[in-house]
């Protein structure tokens, strides 16, 4: 702790300037990156970078407790929660960046920039070059953590207690919201299989690309020219298949083709 404090013992030191500009750059880039990423996961990673850089800035400003809390609570817990929810609702989903609300994007940009300009004006209006510095305050109780603890458990005790109530309420609320009431007893495996047999379609559906008249195992699939083929029928069932009109020659031809043989021309003598 004292080592961290040593890094910020003086406002406006060169070290702090370097740290500020680097971290400010990272924070802004992270914020912009979060803004423009199509994937929510990328946004989450970008904002994590911003938060960490902010944590560094807290520490440089003589708030090591907050900096640590920022890392642990925000980047550690909150962002993990975000990612967790993202996983739950589909990590692959991307968001179209095309605006659907008319004028929303322009208005948002204009208003936000205007808002920022106003904030700049306000800060410039009241800012003082001379900062008191946090070191004195930190030293009063023998350290930053002790100082904050002193304030929290003394002057802000009531607010602190209220916050605890808020946290409890939030936890309960999250449970209530996330909870789903089950109204029927869970089906056993036996019941599930019985249901499937009774549904009239006990077997799996045919695979994609197979043009079957119906999905009985013995039904041959159809070739691209519309001819049925018993190649789709399991060996033991060939011949005894309920299917009619299976072109066995064709099956042979295809088998030969598959084996690397020449194309056997189609005999037309059957046609009458």
């Amino acid at each position: 702790m004292s080592g961290l404090l040593a890094a910020v013992d003086q406002t406006g030191s060169t070290g702090e300037q370097i740290v500020f500009w680097v971290c400010a750059l990272v924070a802004v880039v992270g914020a912009v990156g979060m803004l423009v990423s199509r994937r929510a996961v990328h946004s989450a990673l970008f904002i994590a970078a911003t938060m960490i850089s902010l944590a560094v800035l807290y520490i440089t400003q003589g708030a090591p407790f907050l900096g640590m809390a920022q890392i642990v609570v925000y980047t550690g817990a909150v962002m993990m929660l975000f990612l967790f929810v993202l996983m739950l609702i589909g990590v692959d989903s991307t968001e179209s960046l095309v605006e659907t609300l008319k004028g929303q994007r322009i208005a948002a940009l204009v208003l936000s920039i205007g808002f920022g300009v106003l904030l700049f004006a306000a800060i410039g209006n009241v800012s003082v070059n001379l900062a008191v510095g946090i070191d004195g305050a930190n030293a009063t109780d023998g350290g930053n953590v002790e100082g904050i603890a002193h304030l929290i458990f003394d002057r802000y005790l009531l607010a602190f207690e209220v916050t605890s109530a808020l946290l409890i309420t939030a936890a309960l609320g999250a449970m209530v919201l996330a909870h789903r009431e089950r109204h029927t007893p869970r089906k056993t495996q036996r019941e599930q299989s019985q249901d499937r047999v009774r549904s009239g379609e006990p077997q799996n559906l045919p695979g994609p690309g197979v043009y079957a008249l119906h999905n009985a195992v013995g039904t041959p699939g159809l070739l691209p020219d519309g001819q049925p083929t018993d190649r789709s029928v399991p060996e033991p069932l060939r011949g005894v298949s309920a299917a009619v009109g299976v072109d066995h020659e064709d099956t042979l031809r295809v088998n030969a083709l598959a084996a690397g043989g020449a194309i056997i021309p189609v005999t037309k003598e059957d046609e009458s």
């Binding site: 406002t11 406006g12 030191s13 702090e16 300037q17 500020f20 400010a24 924070a27 802004v28 914020a31 912009v32 979060m34 803004l35 911003t50 800035l57 400003q61 968001e95 605006e99 929303q104 994007r105 208005a107 948002a108 940009l109 208003l111 936000s112 920039i113 808002f115 920022g116 904030l119 700049f120 800060i123 410039g124 800012s127 003082v128 070059n129 900062a131």
Partner: peptide
């Protein structure tokens, strides 16, 4: 360094956040 720079950074980040809320 002027500590107001931190405030300016804060304003920039806030505005970027606001844009994000409005457009995403």
């Amino acid at each position: 360094m002027n500590p107001a720079n931190y405030l300016y950074l804060s304003a920039i980040l806030f505005s970027l956040g606001a844009v994000g809320v409005l457009v995403r």
